[in-house]
Design a protein around this nucleic acid. Structure first.
Lengths: 234, 234
DNA sequence: GTTGCTTGTTGTCGAAGTGACAACTATCGT
DNA sequence: ACGATAGTTGTCACTTCGACAACAAGCAAC
């Protein structure tokens, strides 16, 4: 039997979608079109549907509000935020935050409740979000910085084929400090469960310079790699 | 404003409480007294109250169902389980699972919905839990094994003052394999942000043997330590 | 073409950390 | 006193890391 006098909740999902833009870590935010916080920046998200998996709801809301292609998106649960006063409205709204990474930092198109949707550098957006989304963003930032240490997640910021210099750029953007190219090369080449060479080579970023070897990631975004790429050690 | 036609959810918390018993990793489970799954083992947990913080709900349910003292308990959110079919009952029940560690592996006392409450070795209980609690336990086990690598969480399995041999016993119980005493000593003594010596020394476990130096943990359970104690490296 | 610049890749070397294992120390039981 | 037990320190070969130098391969300007 079931006591129906238990409190009821509304359940939402929020998505922190990261990408690399101009060598910086950028996050996708929307301008809210409805109260509360109308006109403020917020993370894309919305209510979970009847019979819908949490992660599916996250992907759906992302597509609806920003037009971002949900396919080939590394998406994972971050944590749940449920402080009783986190939503001004007279209902308890608990949100399951998700972390996502994409290689397509294409222009988003606002939809449904969102008045606008844009990529912004994380440093600019921190401290200005609606609800408790600043806290969510801070958690997400720490998580992604940590995840690229011991998973292949960094490759999800890039197209299927990429050079080690591009991959190094991802680590630099996420961690916010430069990495020695030589040591990075040596370390990543020694991780057989992360990268495989395609044999091809391609012109470097600026057009000038020696061509770079092209690699592919072996596994899935959140698969663990054998020897971690430690922040302190780079 | 607020569309009340959004689906409503019931929200529960579940707690995976670990302790060390007889050199093994043990988990606290209850025998369910009500349907569904009456008579089956399950993780302690229950419905979140009106206006109640998630982590407070977890602590309350733990005390209610098992009589375990919630004070001085390392308690942290694990992740949220919300598959549409995870509860047989005709309502959507989403559960926020929590991870906890205690030094008091005292005898629990069953309460409220629980018919019994006991400590069981994790290896015995795996595969026999109600709902999706096996999955939750597996996540918790992996999380605690990972957390003791780079936080002080291992000390939460022990009284405030302990020897390095006791601490080594915790790592061995959680990881399930023996660790070289000498190397463990060298590694942990070199971590100044983890342990501080009390100067005292105490008779070893079996009564026989050289007295061991007594240490105290410096920080809080989930604080990061400077140099991680890697599983692979032990 | 040659020179110089830029970028990718490989090499070198000292410092530090690791795993295996031996040696030493302090207590207890007999 | 003696051996058994458990905590602690030492040794050593091996690996990894960070800093930095050196080399390779393209482009642009002259």
């Amino acid at each position: 039997m079931f006591h129906s006098d238990f409190p009821i909740f509304y359940l939402t999902v929020d998505v922190v979608l990261f990408a690399q833009r101009d060598g910086e870590l950028a996050v996708l935010v929307v301008e809210r079109g409805e109260e509360p916080y109308a006109g403020s920046w917020a993370l894309p998200g919305g209510f979970v549907g009847d019979g819908e998996e949490l992660v599916d709801a996250a992907r759906r809301e992302l597509v609806e509000e920003t037009g971002i292609d949900g396919e080939g998106l590394a998406l994972e649960q971050l944590r749940t935020f449920g402080a009783p006063d986190r939503d001004r409205r007279p209902h308890r709204v608990v949100s399951v935050a998700h972390l996502a990474v994409t290689r397509h930092a294409e222009a988003p198109t606002a939809g449904t409740d969102a008045r606008a949707a844009v990529w912004l550098p994380v440093d600019e957006v921190a401290g200005r979000l609606a609800f408790d989304h600043d806290e969510i963003l801070a958690h997400a930032r720490e998580r992604v910085a940590s995840k690229i240490e011991y998973t292949q997640l960094a490759a999800s910021f890039l197209p299927p084929e990429f050079t080690l210099a591009q991959l190094r750029g991802v680590y630099e953007a996420v961690w916010g400090h430069p990495i020695d190219p030589g040591n990075f090369q040596r370390k990543l080449r020694a991780a057989p469960d992360f990268l495989e060479s395609t044999g091809a080579s391609v012109k470097p970023a600026g057009g000038r310079g020696r061509p770079a070897e092209v690699f592919r990631a072996c596994g899935r975004p959140f698969d663990r790699i054998g020897s971690p790429v430690l922040r302190s050690a780079m």
